[in-house]
Nucleic acid binder design. Structure first.
Lengths: 201, 201, 201, 201
DNA sequence: GATGAATGAGGCTTCATTCAT
DNA sequence: AATGAATGAAGCCTCATTCAT
């Protein structure tokens, strides 16, 4: 009752589960999954451990949620871009740039993604791998389509092309700084451009 | 008694410090730094805790050694390649391919590198960052040299080009499998080729 | 929606308190009192925690109810048997056999009885001890009656005779299996026979 | 250094593992396995948790040790008694009385035995069951030998006879008090006598 | 050079119970 | 009559490091 005097954090007074997830995401990105204690999470979220375990089965569950949220988001956006009826080079460029912008906008998620995947339980790890695979294949299909129709070079296997681009996307969390000289969109344009130029026949 | 009948691991009967480092590298790559206990390391190396702490000041020291070894190796190789008097596009191609081959040959080190950097003590972290920066700059110098001389496009800032390529290098530990269809050299040639093609004016 | 399609458990759609008690009895016997959580009980009974605490003051209350029910049942049966006007050896044999059959028919209760008594609150523990004592005394009175009238040997103190028999009754939950070679009645006859034979002058 | 001023407990200054086991046995018997916390054990033993886990893999291990110790002891004694060349009725009487005396002398172990077996891990539970079975069979062999040679009645299956007797042994921990009217040996003689009388042809 | 027992802090998780609705 | 979110205490266990030998 009365008014709480200090708002601990997270979207002011957001529902508890969301608050926990937001806080956990930030802390996992800042110091790594293993270095983040459940105690720290609940303190930062202003709830008790009991509350956390009321909503999440384990610390691992929390991590899995971060992955699930990110994968859902990326898959949706890729599906939308790939389904347009623009020429394949435009669709690939759009997809390549979009994933860069989205990744920069959720850099914490990205950092967690590439650092902490092996900290998931084996079972959840497999699940995430499978979803990631679907995403990769959708993207690869675009490259292959362009290769078949002759607008992209066939010098490099499509799989390798996809891994080439996604390496640079993953790497963003290592070097991109919001206060750097380039906006997310500029970075995205440059990286998409590099990809498309590499694919010129 | 007498001669040990079973060699625990590591280069057969290598000196204790090397054996510890080899074992630690493998375990850190397999399960992550935080998930690897000192007890597991000494057991796998066939020594006791006292021995480990005799040679290394802390668990963190062990991790730092992995980084130092890798950075030394890569810097040496890049310096050698870059110092040749071949045309700049040949030097860049050689450097880009060489780092790929070296990374694949030491995939455990690479995996540790991108996953566990934030688990170093702040002090050692800074040291590694600084060395990494030197490496990056040496590589960037090659790109800039080519851009100035007109053999590479200037459409993309050299920094971004370097990060683009190194993203794909880091990513190798995520997808490369020794039993896959491509040899390390083939992967290296493809990735260097993609970089050079992207840089065509 | 509409009518529930699956009945969670317990006598089909029995009143909530009975359902809870039945479920708790089974779970306490299966995994022990301390290893059974209130959450598991309410889930198995298809109700919520609030409902449980509406009918029972605490988890301990639930355990106490199991004891009370069992003690009531056994006391009633013993009173009935002992009050008959058959010869004392017939009455003792009937009582000895009856408690065996009843125990086998409620093996869960018996298992809980001997394993979990010390998990009752001190207060309820005393209550149960007192009722148990009354039962023991009633049974002992039969032995003493036979000893006084000369049909039973006086070689062994009556108290010890009672404990001898009840040891074997308690032990039933450890070894008796419904799918074994002997029916409850056969086991009961054998054990009563052993008691009576031991008491032959 | 200096002299420790307070000796926490257990045989004064006994080796740590023994001290832990002695303390754990007492506490498990007093309040049950689940109600005894590791914290309480180490405090009573005057060591830290780390020390406990240096010697025992888990709390469950501690419990298992209690069982192993008791089973070893009982099996040894039964083997010794059964191997004598006295007449079978003397050997059975000796065995029956001996297990009673031994049980009373280690009443804590006995209490734990019958109350906490189901709290062992499934794996260790099986192990204990198997050893217990061997003991039971050795004892049963004595009964069968007497039945074959005609000194014991064959009215009751030997298995049931053994369970009858061991029920009363288990039950000892429920009612026997050191300050009661009967010495351990007297109780033992009475119980062995009851068994032998029940077996008279 | 090397041992390994012991520490002490901290980690994740469980749970009976309460209370506003 | 019943809900279910939230509490707060306690539980078991792990681990990097130290130190007397």
């Amino acid at each position: 009752m009365a008014a709480r005097t200090t708002e601990p954090e997270g979207t002011h007074e957001a529902p508890v589960p969301q608050r926990l997830l937001a806080v956990a995401t930030r802390l996992f990105a800042e110091r790594g999954y293993d270095r983040t204690s459940v105690q720290e999470i609940v303190e930062a979220a202003g709830v008790t451990k009991g509350a956390l375990y009321h909503y999440f089965g384990s610390k691992d569950d929390l991590l899995h949620e971060v992955y699930a949220r990110m994968l859902r988001r990326q898959q949706q956006r890729l599906d939308a871009v790939a389904a347009s009826d623009a020429p394949v080079e435009d669709r690939l460029r759009a997809a390549a740039a979009d994933v860069v912008v989205t990744t920069i906008e959720n850099l914490d998620d990205a950092m967690i993604f590439f650092r902490s995947m092996h900290q998931l339980s084996p079972e959840k790890f497999k699940q995430v791998r499978a979803e990631r695979r679907r995403y990769h294949e959708r993207f690869r299909a675009l490259v292959e389509e362009g290769q078949r129709s002759g607008v992209f070079s066939t010098a490099t296997p499509a799989d390798l092309v996809v891994d080439y681009h996604f390496g640079s996307v993953h790497h963003l969390s290592t070097w991109y700084r919001a206060d750097g000289p380039l906006t997310p969109q500029q970075v995205a344009d440059h990286l998409a451009d590099l990809l498309l130029r590499a694919l010129r026949p």
